[in-house]
Amino acid sequence: MNRMSFFSASALSVIQTGLVILVAPVMSGFHSFMSARFAGVAAPPVLRRLYLTRKYWSELSVQPANVDVMASQANVIVAVAATSGITSALVASALVPTSALGLATAPLSDILTITFLLMASYISCQLVLLNGLSETAANTFRGIISVAAIIPVIFLVSVIFFTKSATTNLDVVLSSLRSESPFGDGAPFVLAALALLISGSSSGSDEIETSAQGTDRAMLMLACDSISLVWLTLAGDLLWPGSLVVISESAGILDSLGNLGLGFLLWIVRCIMLCIVLSVSRLIVAGPVAVIRMRTTAALLLLLFAIQIVFGSHLASVNSLGETLQQEISRDHAEGKRL
């Protein structure tokens, strides 16, 4: 990578992180809007989340007087949780390619790193509720159990990555997938994307917002929205890797800017489509425990199916290669006999 492309890749990483900060509240608002519309209840405005985040950001975080030790402890936990949650979520968002491949963070974009950062961010955001009363803490812990079940899913996803591209680096895998059809060789990754979407797309609870105030509240909201958006982006990348742009392939600056704009547009479209899918899936009425079971079971079954397809297609490609070699050998023999 020469100096110019390195700077452009670094600038693109920064722009991407900034766009995630801007788009995440809007996408979360759209998700809430669509869920409400499908459920037949009054829908909140799409930009409500963005407005609230901006409003709370400008407010002061309340620092209670030192006489109330309980409030002081809760305040410390909120401050630590908000900072670590937003930090981990934004770092994860910088590692996932949204519109273009070959970012400056491409060597770091390991699937294990990204998903564990997202999980750390999610747990940090939930710490505020875990410090709450019994019912809230129990419900939150149930949600964490549901999200923690993603770890075996991630390991199985990495099996698919490794079988296909011999690495767990997301950038390399997506580069190799760009030319493949989602109904052909890319089918296992479509299933893996669905598994990630099912198991990782738990939206932030509204109770988080009420348990913090001021800038902390805005940061927690932004962290939850960023986590959801990064999961959507990750699933969307695996579903449709052809929509990602490679910067080095562009002929000129104008060409690359146009491609980047198209890439960002396709990223938004992908996320909107996946939001609609998630909103529809929320129509399934089930208890919290049944939801945990369904999500985990569905994700694991999808991945097992994907692994079977990966090995089957791999075997089929090996067999076809063998047949081709056999034909070439027999043709050579025939030509040799003829000579």
Partner: peptide, 19 residues
């Protein structure tokens, strides 16, 4: 990267001064 994001976040966090 974590430090690069955490430092501005901590600086931007507005809070009332501790008494």
């Amino acid at each position: 990267m974590l430090a690069a994001i955490a430092v501005p976040v901590v600086l931007l966090r507005r809070r009332t001064p501790r008494q």
